[in-house]
């Protein structure tokens, strides 16, 4: 137990001092890594804990990006406020999506494809609406001022997303130890059994998807402010959905540390492959596809899940050997 806190402390020291000794490019990778760790942590709530796999979290990401941007450009609303409005709208959309699918207990593939379709609906809608400037996208005018969510260097963005990621990780940690968390895990393991034991499955799943959708929107706003540009083909693209689900799957679905550990493994890998073959689009997604298959075939519980298993087994093993020794001496 103590070792865990030392590990977390060391990780935090490393993350907070990272900008001191990293290059500008490394810092960019750090930012993207943390951003997808954040979004994957949000994804983890509905997909990891309650086992309803969303393939369309780009919907909420895109809503976050577009809401704050439109509010800023059209109505001069501060993005720091805009991001909360984006989260509320994304949460509302998630609520509708959850209502449509969970009402009839649609799960598994039904749910996954419905989320995918929802992201697609939003993409086509935004792409065809004059108000959102169609396929051209929206530029955010340059106005470097932290008060307006724009920073001089990448360091500011880095600390912003780092703090956001720490906050969401604490939230997920608290959920995982709360009644809601236990209910969600019960639903994941056996929904009918959970319901017969008095877990209100519909209500719990609705809470989870609404939270998950709303929180994902914060990553969208961050992305918009980081690039100062939003476009339907980038923020609503299925690539975003994939980048959001990858870290949790690699790190371990339904674990607090999974999405973070996973993002540090998989996001830099994706960035590097697309950087290495920069003239060929799609190489990072080939790598992601191969990683998904390898992980599911050989390590479906993910890196963190495998580590937990290993620790548990060792503890059990120690106990057994101790008992054996005791039985021998007595």
């Amino acid at each position: 137990m103590k070792k865990k806190w030392v590990l977390i402390g060391l990780l935090l020291v490393f993350l907070f001092t990272f900008p001191l000794y990293s290059t500008n490019y490394l810092l960019h990778i750090g930012i993207i890594t943390l951003m997808f760790a954040f979004a994957s942590q949000a994804w983890n709530i509905i997909s990891g804990y309650s086992g309803q796999f969303s393939f369309g979290h780009a919907a909420f990401f895109g809503v976050g990006a577009y809401t704050s941007t439109v509010l800023l450009v059209e109505y001069n609303v501060n993005p720091w406020i805009g991001m909360f409005i984006g989260a509320i709208i994304a949460a509302a959309i998630a609520f509708v999506l959850g209502f449509l699918t969970f009402r009839y207990k649609l799960k598994g593939a039904y749910f996954s494809l419905t989320t995918l379709a929802f992201a697609e609906i939003l993409r086509v809608f935004v792409k065809n609406t004059d108000f959102f400037r169609k396929t051209m996208g929206i530029m955010i005018p340059l106005d470097i001022n932290p008060f307006w969510y724009q920073f001089q260097t990448r360091v500011g963005y880095y600390y912003t997303i780092l703090i956001l990621t720490i906050i969401i990780t604490v939230i997920v940690y608290l959920i995982s130890r709360s009644r809601l968390g236990f209910n969600l895990i019960a639903i994941r393991e056996n929904e009918d059994a959970a319901q017969s034991l008095g877990v209100r499955t519909f209500k719990n799943k609705m809470i989870a998807i609404t939270l998950s959708g709303g929180l994902t929107a914060f990553a969208g706003t961050f992305y918009a402010q980081y690039l100062l540009f939003v476009k339907p083909e980038t923020v609503f693209a299925s690539d975003i959905s994939v980048s959001i689900l990858m870290p949790a799957i690699v790190g371990g679905v339904g674990t607090v540390a999974g999405p973070i550990v996973g993002s540090f493994i998989v996001t830099p890998l994706g960035e590097l492959t697309s950087q290495m073959f920069s003239n060929l689009a799609g190489t990072n997604l080939i790598a992601y596809g191969v990683i998904i298959i390898i992980i599911i075939l050989f390590m479906p519980e993910g890196v963190v899940g495998r580590y937990h298993d290993w620790v548990n087994r060792r503890k059990k093993g120690n106990k057994e050997t101790q008992e054996q020794k005791e039985s021998v001496t007595s």
Binding site: F53, F55, V242, I249, G282, T283, L285, I286, Y288, G289, V290, I291, I292, I293, I296, L297
Partner: peptide
């Protein structure tokens, strides 16, 4: 997820 991964590999 596996079939999703296969799709990503083939498509890309």
């Amino acid at each position: 997820l596996i079939t999703f991964g296969i799709m990503m590999i083939i498509e890309n």
